[in-house]
């Protein structure tokens, strides 16, 4: 289940006066069962990059290997690839098209050759995972609120049970609890089934919390691909690219500058809480003496 990219370059309207580079000479390889966070400024090429990974758009130059096979080699089964490498679009509207929610989510599994009954079961399981109840099954996908649409779109891909799950801002538009639920669901699938996840996000807090490694794009180039701690150490460079470190990291950085012995590379509330409480306990013990 590894994806390998070699020298990927994507130019929109190549060869015309309007040509624009969206992805520039990107190479990387994912590890089996890895949770990757993909961040980058608006227009940095994230959506363009991931659409190439499941063969939806073809790179202008460069190669993509899935489990060692070149996906653009002759006779490669592209349909199968799209089932194994599931992609959830940035705007759920691009993905929802059937007359009702259940039929929509069933589409993928049916297309894979499941019987109607099997497909329906898969769809119901997926809808349950994303928190869409039975009362929504017969609704048109266009009669849902923004966050409900996103859940339905995610369910459509989960129902195919892909090996690799690529999500383009899956949490955008979800309420805070909905966001946690969806991200926890994805993280659980990742743990239990060893799925490889690539998650595009504009929330530094979310990638700090969930990703094993973070990929950073800047103007179409891959600038970092490393652990959250390492990546957020470069917060000054990240800021120049329109990104930032998680808010908690800034607090810890300031505390450290002011003389507290805290780890300033932490990025989550839980970690920061532990760090500060450790000092608090030490101090309590000292003053109790």
């Amino acid at each position: 289940m590894s994806i390998k990219a070699e020298g990927l370059t994507y130019i929109y309207q190549a060869g015309t006066a309007m040509e624009s580079y969206a992805v520039r000479d990107i190479s990387f390889e994912t590890k089996d069962g890895e949770f990757i966070g993909l961040i980058g400024h608006t227009g940095s090429g994230k959506s363009t990059l991931i659409q190439q990974l499941n063969g939806l758009i073809k790179p202008t130059s460069g190669k993509i290997y899935y489990n060692g096979e070149d996906i653009h080699s002759e006779g490669y089964d592209m349909k199968r690839l799209r089932q194994r490498v599931g992609l959830v679009f940035q705007y759920p509207e691009y993905q929802l098209f059937e007359t009702d929610v259940l039929t929509d989510v069933k589409f993928g599994p049916k297309n894979m050759g499941m019987s109607d009954i099997e497909a329906e079961e898969a769809a119901k399981r997926a809808l349950k995972l994303v928190g869409i109840g039975e009362d929504f099954y017969k609704r048109s996908p266009f009669e849902l609120s923004g966050g409900q649409k996103r859940r339905a779109a995610i369910a459509g891909v989960l129902a195919m049970d892909p090996e690799v799950l690529i999500l383009d801002e899956p949490a955008a538009g979800l309420d805070p609890l909905g966001k946690t639920e969806i991200l926890e669901t994805i993280a659980r699938l990742h743990r239990e089934r060893n799925n490889t996840i690539i998650m595009v996000s504009h929330s530094m807090e979310d990638v700090a919390e969930y990703a094993d490694r973070i990929m950073v794009l800047d103007d179409g180039k891959l600038v970092y691909f490393d652990s959250p701690k390492e990546v957020f150490r470069h917060y000054e460079e990240l800021e120049k690219m329109g990104l930032s470190a998680p808010q908690i990291t800034y607090l810890m950085g300031d505390l450290k500058k002011r003389g507290l012995q805290v780890d300033d590379s932490v990025g989550t509330v839980a970690e920061a809480c532990r760090e500060i409480l450790r000092l608090w306990k030490e101090k309590e013990e000292k003053s109790a003496e």
Binding site: H41, G146, A172, H202, G242, S244
Partner: peptide, 11 residues
């Protein structure tokens, strides 16, 4: 939700 799809600086 004007900032739902924006990067940190854009937000």
């Amino acid at each position: 939700e004007p900032t739902a799809m924006l990067d940190p600086k854009g937000r």
